[in-house]
């Protein structure tokens, strides 16, 4: 017998809290994205990511093609003011798949 009782998040940052120690996907200002394991965050959305992969999108001069390059870092601090969105990277995978 399944009782559909839900669990709630009382404040927005709780959604980030749920993702602690999980792989997350972070959209950043400056055409950057990052994915990695969420180690820590604070109320400013400063986050610390482990095994992070940063993807930087850019358009080279003279071409219209969107290119990207990736940078990896074992542990990275992301300042909150550049964070645009944070999502569970597993959600992202299932969406794209």
């Amino acid at each position: 017998m399944v009782v559909e009782k839900s669990v709630s998040a009382s404040e927005p940052l709780d959604l980030i809290r749920l993702r602690l120690d999980e792989h997350i996907f972070v959209k950043l200002r400056g055409n950057r994205e990052m994915s990695g394991k969420l180690h820590a965050y604070d109320s400013h959305c400063n986050i610390v990511l482990g095994d992070a992969v940063e993807t930087i999108y850019f358009v080279e001069d003279g071409s219209k093609e969107l290119k990207s390059r990736q940078e990896k870092s074992e542990l990275v601090f992301v300042r909150g003011d550049s964070v645009m969105s944070i999502t569970d990277s597993t959600n992202l995978d299932t969406n794209s798949a």
């Binding site: 399944v2 559909e4 839900s6 709630s8 998040a9 749920l18 993702r19 597993t90």
Partner: peptide, 30 residues
């Protein structure tokens, strides 16, 4: 108040279905 009136008070998007990953995660945080 949430405990009393959990289902009515909260907007739908704040509720996690029990099968969802968010529910599991919320259990862990709790």
């Amino acid at each position: 108040t949430q405990e009393i009136d959990d289902d009515n008070l909260l907007p739908k998007e704040y509720k996690f279905s029990k099968s969802s990953r968010s529910f599991q995660l919320s259990i862990i945080e709790k």
